[in-house]
């Protein structure tokens, strides 16, 4: 905790979690990454619905689905359920220095 945050005397009496968990990125839990083949994707959004994390979003403005790797835990459900097998689980390329 940074010093700017309230201490226990200032916070409310009942236990209140003051921050949204969207500030806690779980994406680094994953080993495999879902990679989607744009050609095969029919935009049926089944992967969006079946993801336990809400880490795949349907973007009508862009006309495609988008992975949020900040939250994807790499479970592979989306790849398993995609009707056109457009998603494959891949080991990410090691970045420089790794």
């Amino acid at each position: 905790m940074s010093s700017k945050e309230k201490g226990w005397r200032e916070i409310s009496i009942a236990g209140v979690s003051p921050k949204s968990s969207v500030g806690f990125m779980t994406g680094d839990w994953k080993t495999y990454m879902p990679i989607r083949d744009l050609e095969k994707c029919t935009k049926c959004v089944m992967c969006v619905l079946y993801c336990p994390e809400g880490a795949i979003r349907w973007r009508p403005d862009l006309g495609k689905i988008e992975f949020d790797y900040n939250f994807c835990k790499g479970c592979g459900i989306c790849a398993n359920e995609c009707p056109t097998k457009a998603i494959t689980m891949k080991l990410p390329e090691p970045t420089e220095g790794e």
Binding site: T26, V45, M46, E53, G54, K73
Partner: peptide, 23 residues
Amino acid sequence: TAKDIALKPEGFLPGHRACAGCG
């Protein structure tokens, strides 16, 4: 419809600590 549901704002947000693949 699938797309309506996909677009509805999340009530249970990302960043939760359930195991990967949690039903």
